[in-house]
């Protein structure tokens, strides 16, 4: 009976975290490559991926509301609510990405495309990190309440974003997918280190955070974590990067990266538990026994 309060956000919010992160990551990677290396061919796919995926994620956010038709009301409290701030970030992101797409598609002046690339990178990073900030500011969920969470989600957004961009490039017969695969591999290695540091630190944090870590490592979430985040999201891309050169390897690695990114959001969403009240869950009573 008490369980009904524990799970308030479910799979729809996981979908949002994943899709918005991936879309923002794709645009951030594409626009940065344009700014740093002068790449032109990934600009359009990056802008399209950003718009389509972030819109799809936002639709999941709206669908999760109890009164979806009143969604516009969430814009009204940006002073204190992360949801309001996030709704504004998502709106701005979509506007700038749409402008970027139009400009890049029409082949506008390079100066304009450059400034819009900068704006896109900033807003894409804001969108990607916001998915982590949304959970990270919640004091009542000790496992999330940590400045490392937005950083981790941003790195995961960049790895899934480069994966998605690489897949599109591959299907279009582009020449950049190898380099995108390398970027993706770099982000994945960074992300893996961070996930394990995160769990290690949380395991030595409060008893409530420790309870969440046990859920992830050996409890109800062990399968999505070990199978999805570690197996699919780390080992499969690593294996295909090292042993399967060429298009097959890049495609396999990218698809596995997307799956791993999804399971990362899934694991973290459902591991965020409230601190227990006395008597609330007997299986955890060993934690408070002397």
């Amino acid at each position: 009976m008490y369980g009904q309060h524990e799970s308030t956000w479910g799979i729809k919010i996981v979908n949002y975290l994943f899709l918005a992160g991936m879309g923002a990551g794709a645009l951030a990677v594409g626009a940065s490559l344009h700014l740093i290396a002068g790449w032109e061919q990934v600009l359009l796919p990056a802008a399209v991926l950003g718009i389509v995926l972030v819109s799809a994620g936002s639709l999941f956010l709206v669908a999760d509301l109890g009164r979806p038709l009143n969604f516009w009301k969430v814009l009204s409290n940006p002073a204190s609510s992360m949801i309001s701030i996030g709704a504004w970030i998502l709106t701005l992101f979509l506007v700038v990405a749409a402008g970027f797409l139009l400009m890049a598609n029409a082949g506008g002046p390079p100066g304009w495309i450059r400034s819009l690339s900068w704006a896109s990178v900033v807003l894409a990073l804001a969108t990607a990190s916001y998915t982590g900030v949304l959970l990270g500011v919640v004091k009542a969920r000790p496992f999330w309440n940590n400045p490392l969470l937005p950083v981790l989600f941003t790195v995961s957004a960049l790895s899934t974003g480069s994966g998605a961009l690489g897949l599109v490039d591959l299907f279009q017969g582009g020449a950049e997918f190898q380099l995108l695969g390398q970027a993706e591999m770099g982000f994945i290695l960074l992300e893996s280190v961070m996930v394990f540091l995160y769990l290690a630190i949380m395991n030595h944090s409060t008893v409530d955070a420790m309870r969440s870590v046990r859920l992830v490592v050996s409890g109800r979430l062990a399968l999505p974590f070990w199978g999805g985040v570690v197996g699919l999201g780390l080992f499969v891309p690593l294996f295909s990067y090292l042993f399967l050169p060429g298009e097959t390897g890049v495609a396999m690695g990218a698809v596995a990266t997307l799956g791993g990114g999804y399971f990362l959001r899934h694991t973290f969403m459902f591991a965020g538990l409230r601190p227990l009240l006395p008597g609330e869950a007997l299986e955890a009573s060993f934690l408070v026994k002397r």
């Binding site: 008490y2 309060h5 009164r67 969604f71 609510s81 949801i83 009542a140």
Partner: peptide
């Protein structure tokens, strides 16, 4: 609007979501 962020933020589990009213 039924975003349920308050339920996530309440450390006491004192809030519930009314499916019918949203």
């Amino acid at each position: 609007v039924g975003c349920k962020y308050c339920m996530v933020a309440c450390p006491y589990g004192a809030r519930s979501f009314n499916q019918d009213k949203g």
